[in-house]
């Protein structure tokens, strides 16, 4: 288990983790926007940059790397608040604030880094999308890949293929829930859910009548896992009630 020094503090972490985890273990907060535990790191937002020096390098030689995807190594020294690290984070946030001037999360992070107003040209069409890629990655992760990033450079956008309601979408809301800025809009009622321009039929719990899951999602999971559909349409409340009843029955039998 490698031991590292983060801002002067020693930490020992597991072999196969990234610097971000070592920083957290040392109680040092590193801001991130495109990272999510359980998804492969992506390295797109560049907010998590830190200065890093390997044991074999000269003491004053540091390389700037992203903490979210750089593997840990025995004897590493990490500095998360050097002048150039903070300057680089400021540039990243300054740029994001120009892109997303009305987005609370970005406003807050920028303010925390001393930026009240962007130094750059304001986006004439403000958006909440920071292009962190979390939505497309989580969609890939569950094996659906209904949405993707299209176009390159400044024109990059997250969209379903051909900008039409995505045929592969199962309406699971993973993308909307993972989105750090709540950019992805959806509605859910007792009978119907809408997202990405599509409407999904909801399955309702046979006992309680509450909407639980879209039919498409239940089918997707059922097909992949072999678990019967009925399992998915049972709401959590229903399941709890079921458990409670069983306990009650046991108590009756016992007494």
């Amino acid at each position: 288990m490698p031991t590292l020094k983060v801002n002067g503090r020693k930490v020992t972490v597991a072999e196969d983790v990234y610097l971000l985890e070592a920083c957290r273990a040392a109680g040092v907060e590193v801001p991130t926007l495109c990272n999510f535990d359980g998804l492969e790191p992506w390295g797109g937002c560049r907010l998590c940059v830190v200065d890093m020096s390997l044991a074999k390098w000269d003491d004053d030689w540091f390389k700037m790397v992203t903490a979210c995807n750089h593997p840990v190594e025995e004897g590493m020294t990490v500095i998360t608040d050097s002048e150039r690290v903070l300057a680089t984070r400021r540039v990243v946030l300054d740029l994001l604030l120009a892109r997303c001037p009305e987005t609370p999360l970005i406003q807050r992070l920028a303010r925390e880094h001393g930026i009240e107003e962007t130094s750059y040209e304001l986006n004439p069409e403000p958006t909440d999308c920071i292009l962190c890629g979390l939505c497309t990655r989580v969609c890939d992760h569950i094996g659906v890949s209904a949405i993707a990033s299209t176009d390159r450079g400044w024109g990059r956008e997250i969209a379903p293929p051909f900008n039409e309601p995505p045929p592969d979408c199962i309406g699971c809301l993973a993308c909307a829930e993972i989105c750090p800025t709540d950019h992805i809009k959806f509605t859910t009622s007792n009978s119907c859910r809408t997202i990405w321009g599509r409407e999904f039929e909801m399955l309702r719990d046979p006992k309680t009548g509450e909407a639980v899951i879209t039919k498409a999602q239940a089918e997707h999971f059922a097909a992949r896992s072999g678990v019967p559909m009925t399992y998915f349409e049972t709401s959590d409340r229903s399941k709890r009630l079921e458990v409670a009843k069983t306990v009650e029955r046991l108590r009756v039998v016992k007494s």
């Binding site: 390295g43 797109g44 937002c45 560049r46 907010l47 680089t88 540039v91 990243v92 740029l95 994001l96 120009a98 892109r99 750059y120 040209e121 920071i130 292009l131 890629g133 990033s149 176009d151 390159r152 450079g153 400044w154 024109g155 990059r156």
Partner: peptide, 17 residues
């Protein structure tokens, strides 16, 4: 600016600005 892939903030937004 045309050729940036757009994945990371400094290059995508930075080149544009």
């Amino acid at each position: 600016t045309e050729e940036s892939c757009g994945k990371c903030v400094p290059c995508r937004e930075g080149l544009k600005q």
